[in-house]
Design a protein around this nucleic acid. Structure first.
Ligand SMILES: NC(=O)c1ccc[n+]([C@@H]2O[C@H](COP(=O)([O-])OP(=O)(O)OC[C@H]3O[C@@H](n4cnc5c(N)ncnc54)[C@H](O)[C@@H]3O)[C@@H](O)[C@H]2O)c1
Ligand SMILES: NC(=O)c1ccc[n+]([C@@H]2O[C@H](COP(=O)([O-])OP(=O)(O)OC[C@H]3O[C@@H](n4cnc5c(N)ncnc54)[C@H](O)[C@@H]3O)[C@@H](O)[C@H]2O)c1
Lengths: 206, 206
DNA sequence: ATGAACTTGTTAATTGATTAACAAAAAATA
DNA sequence: TATTTTTTGTTAATCAATTAACAAGTTCAT
């Protein structure tokens, strides 16, 4: 299938989680406007996304939930699942790990995390071990981990990023502050709550 | 000044943090392409944003950092500062509070947080107290808090949102999973790391 | 049956965001 | 002094995302 627009991919991921919950109500069908309102979207946008996804609905009942979920799974879970890891198992890392683990279906698997704190190393959370950061390169290579979530607190993040890229990481989700350098072809996503706060403050007052 | 486009506001917030750090290098000027590369942006975009912001650079040296920062402050910090609060001081709430507190300049102030856990209530973090959630409405009204960061874990989030809106909250930054309802005119921003993971996985494999 | 009331699926139009293009200014170089 | 280099500021062009418009299918009520 043709490559989907980034915003569509983002929403499709959200559809899946909402639908998984909706399914527990044993409602076999859903209308585009219902799915839209659950996510504060426009119904046309939902239908357009689903068209791009290749699913088709029903004039009377809307979309069949099981079919929709199947179709989303096929699109997002290719190939099988991507391996991700969390670097820095402090408060944020632990919260994220538990949050991700709460997902019933997810095309991204976390099987290992890393830290430098001896109190953390060799402990497990929900069965997922925390390894010594010095072993990160070999474990990342061995497990073919492709995504690194950066939730550590350190002065020299750049050195760590370079090592991780060398070990095979192709995408970073970075929660640390401060500019970092990454070569072309490596994906990077950063969110800082301070930006969100400032944006919202601006909106409220303007 | 005219209302800035949302994406420009977002970037301006990032410029400020990067510039605050850059300033410590005692470099009085910065070029658009340097600021751009620190944030993985296009130099033209930076110049365009700064044009919209109303600042002006210098043909030889680029932009004067102190002037830039002053201009950003005036745009983002209106009026003075918005009050925000964190609902749910678990792992995530605590991490966020410390992270926000690490900002030298921020137009958003957090002076109170809330929880239901007796072990949390009446403790302080970096001098910021955690109050009993049952007192939230009165304190929010009294302190004119406008933004609520939702980092709690509960089954009935909707009831809490309704109470908070009633108390005067105009914007939510929600980390909880699951669809919520908010009336028109209330701002809402949600990020779920699972969506980011799935997006990135899709990008890596397509 | 006929039309009213829904809905989906899709193309077209609009809006928003990014990038390209280039004139104008200033200094450095030849 | 003329030319090259570099950078800003701004308009125009392009690209991306959203929304509008509407035909077509289906059921329900009359
Ligand atoms: N972007 C955001 O919105 C946001 C929100 C909250 C926190 N943060 C940031 O996230 C980071 C973590 O926050 P936290 O509250 O979990 O901090 P924390 O101090 O609780 O945890 C940091 C962890 O990183 C580990 N660590 C340090 N150096 C390491 C290394 N070289 N390799 C591996 N692990 C290492 C520490 O041992 C610790 O366990 C901070 O930098 C914070 O500023 C960002
Ligand atoms: N969106 C994301 O990317 C993301 C990432 C991490 C965590 N999360 C979510 O954030 C939430 C918090 O995660 P955490 O790791 O901090 O959990 P946690 O269990 O450590 O903290 C939850 C806190 O909320 C408090 N609480 C519960 N009910 C409350 C109420 N009615 N009023 C006020 N406080 C209340 C609890 O006492 C506790 O202190 C969870 O829902 C989690 O799924 C989301």
């Amino acid at each position: 299938m043709a490559k989907l627009p980034p915003k569509t991919v983002e929403r499709i991921s959200q559809y899946r989680r909402v639908l998984a919950k909706y399914q527990t109500l044993s409602e076999p069908f859903i209308f585009s406007h219902d799915l839209a309102s659950l996510l504060h979207l426009n119904p046309v946008q939902v239908r357009r996304d689903l068209m791009l996804l290749g699913t088709t609905g029903n004039y009377r009942n809307g979309y069949k939930v099981t079919e929709l979920l199947k179709s989303i799974d096929e699109t997002l879970t290719i190939p099988k699942s991507t391996q991700a890891t969390i670097i820095g198992m402090g408060r944020l890392g632990e919260s994220l790990l538990k949050h991700i683990g709460s997902s019933p279906v997810c095309p991204v698997m976390i099987n290992s995390t890393f830290d430098i704190n001896p109190k953390r190393i060799n402990t497990t959370i929900r069965g997922i071990p925390c390894y010594d950061m010095t072993h990160a390169p070999e474990i990342i290579k061995e497990q073919k981990i492709k995504i690194a979530i950066l939730t550590l607190y350190t002065e020299d993040i750049q050195a760590i990023i370079d090592i991780l890229i060398d070990a095979g990481i192709e995408g970073f989700i970075n929660y640390m502050a401060g500019p970092i350098k990454i070569p072309k072809g490596i994906y990077l996503k950063e969110y800082d709550i301070r930006t969100t706060l400032e944006e919202m403050s601006y909106n409220i007052h303007n």
